[in-house]
């Protein structure tokens, strides 16, 4: 019998997240995929999950899951795991996903593997591939001791694929009780971001500490606009307060996989590399010829970013006839 693989379906901004669909596609290839969908979700959410390979969806639309963090979802998922005993349960390596895996692994005393880039199931046991130490290593890990294996999966590890299954939804009772209503979400604030978003951008122009200041990101914005892309940044640039966290690419920021990644004055710290090194084509500009980023680049220019980027902008304008 095919292994039972569960996916925790995440809804952000009233949409099933891309990572959820990526995990489901992988799960339905590796075994029988089923999803757990908790809290308010768009009308077509269950259908979207079924279309990406979910043979069954455990569902409660109760608002407790939206209004109170972690504890209600843990209560419900732990109950479902104990009842159905899936071989593996996958969670996105997101804010909510991490909280759930942390609490579930302690509650079920089963441990967990984090930062998973790929996995295989062999005789009921899981073997996960993990890019350790910011992707300078690639290790494999397993979990012993039986029970459901909890994996936190990196975004963009798998291709989302259509794999239509008949829609099968099992309503589950909502978690209830004052003890679960302890961490209250009072308000959700969406910070308006200007320009195109990193998620889904085909081209990304990114800047690091070598840009020296907030004002110099305007140059990257101009280049990104010319190429129809978005602007990203390293943690150093974000921590320096030059650009908002939403622009951060790397271990503690976003994972991106654009067609073209232009790294401007980015040395290539593991923190950053782990978030962008699977980009299709990487171009880098750095004054330090020894910068590790060059080892990951398809094309590199050893030079001053303040000379090379403006020249590149002028050249693109010229060639576009502007």
């Amino acid at each position: 019998m095919a292994d039972l693989i569960w996916v925790y379906a995440e809804v952000v901004d009233e949409k099933i997240t891309p990572t959820t669909l990526e995990m489901l596609s992988k799960a339905s290839e590796a075994g029988t995929a089923e999803a757990v969908l908790l809290g308010p979700a768009p009308d077509d959410a269950a259908a979207t999950l079924a279309n990406h390979g979910a043979a069954k969806i455990y569902r409660s639309a109760d608002p407790i899951y939206r209004d109170y963090l972690t504890l209600p979802a843990v209560e419900t998922i732990a109950g479902l795991i104990q009842k159905h005993n899936p071989a593996v349960m996958l969670f996105a390596s997101s804010y909510g996903g991490r909280d759930l895996v942390a609490a579930l692994s302690a509650r079920l005393d089963c441990g967990a593997i984090t930062d998973v880039g790929d996995f295989v199931l062999k005789d009921g046991s899981v073997e996960a591939t993990i890019p350790a130490l910011g992707a300078s290593y690639q290790n494999t890990s397993t979990l012993i001791g039986g029970g459901t294996r909890l994996l936190l999966v990196r975004p963009k590890s798998f291709e989302p694929k259509a794999n239509e299954k008949p829609l099968s939804v099992e309503e589950v009772p909502a978690a209830a009780g004052e003890a679960l209503r302890k961490v209250h979400v009072k308000e959700r604030v969406t910070v308006k971001r200007e320009g195109p978003q990193l998620e889904g951008a085909k081209t990304i122009v990114s800047g690091g500490r070598g840009l020296k200041g907030e004002e110099n990101f305007a140059m990257l914005k101009e280049l990104a606009d010319l190429l129809g892309g978005a602007v990203g940044a390293t943690r150093a640039a974000v921590d320096a307060g030059w650009v908002p966290y939403a622009m951060q690419i790397g271990q503690t920021g976003k994972t991106v996989k654009p067609d073209i990644y232009i790294a401007c004055a980015i040395s290539g710290a593991v923190q950053h590399l782990s978030g962008m090194k699977t980009s299709k084509t990487i171009i880098s500009i750095n004054k330090d010829a020894e910068a590790p980023m060059f080892q990951f680049s398809d094309f590199g220019v050893v030079g001053d970013v303040f000379k090379v980027v403006p020249q590149l902008i002028e050249e693109i304008k010229k060639r576009k006839g502007k």
Partner: peptide, 30 residues
């Protein structure tokens, strides 16, 4: 509960071309 099975290095990206900017770096990227 977690056991590391193997420790390895990720597949290396094919090294690309690196040039030193001699006034034409931007054009070369273009």
């Amino acid at each position: 509960k977690e056991k590391v099975l193997t420790v390895g290095r990720p597949p290396k990206r094919q090294a690309g071309k690196v040039v030193v900017d001699e006034g034409e770096g931007g054009k070369q990227i273009a």
